[in-house]
Every structure is written in structure tokens, then in C-alpha cells.
Amino acid sequence: MPIEIDFFLNNINYIGAMVLFVIGLYTVLTHPNLIKKVIGINIMETSVFLFFVSIGFISGANAPIVEQGQAAETVVNPLPSAMILTGIVVAIGVTAFALSLIVKIHEAYGTIELDEIMQIRSAEKND
């Protein structure tokens, strides 16, 4: 049975968003390095933004600027893009906060590898 290429091509941004989401989640869950975890979170965020912006996109349509007297043409929905602008700001805030926490963790433990931190903590517990 032939794969429906059209289906994939028409929905490529949604499929890409979902693939990115899973890649990001995988990175967060499997990497012991805290910076890489933050990168994974960023990938997940990007995937959601891609997904959200794709909802409003119409191929070939213009920006929603309608001049007085002109007939309204097909326009792209601007609302998702506006919301994602907020989303990006929030994502930057979270990333900055996570990185500053990682600096503090590096000061406290001398490493940002989760497995080494666990070793240090279990060694402290046994003392």
C-alpha cells in the first residue's frame, strides 16, 4: 500500500512539531547533564510554538492588514503568533532562571552532572 505522501506534506509542520516534542522530552529525561536538560526543555517549547503558529497559518495568505475601502482578502490568523510572542518571553524567563539555578548547583556541588551529584549526596548521607 503506498504511503500517502500528500498527507505528510500537508501536515508536515504538525508532524515536525510532534517529533520535536518527543526529541525534547527524550533529551530531558535521559541526559544527566543539567544544561542539556535545559536545552531539551527549550526544544519542547519550540515544538509547541511551531505547533501553535501552524494553526493560524494559511498558505499564500497575507498579513491581516486591511485598508479602508478595500475588500478583505484571505489573511493569516494573527492571534496564535501574538500569543506565541508571550510564550517566547516566558520561555526565556524560565531558561534564565534554570541556568542561574544551575550556576548555584555548580557552586554547591562542583559539578552539573546529575549522576555525580547523586553520588556526592549518597556519600554525604552515609557519613
Binding site: 526543555i41 519542547m44 509547541v48 501553535f52 524560565v94 534554570a98 539555578l101 544551575i102 548555584k104
Partner: peptide, 23 residues
Amino acid sequence: LMASMKYLIMGTIGSITVLMGFA
């Protein structure tokens, strides 16, 4: 510090997931 890092990572995954649902 470690507890808050864990909470931050889990919490951020949570809010991203919520946003995906809203989308």
C-alpha cells in the same frame, strides 16, 4: 537547590504540555 531544579524541570514540562493541550 537540587529539589528546586527537579521541580523546575518537571514544572516546565508540565506547563509546556498544558500549552500543547490548549493549542
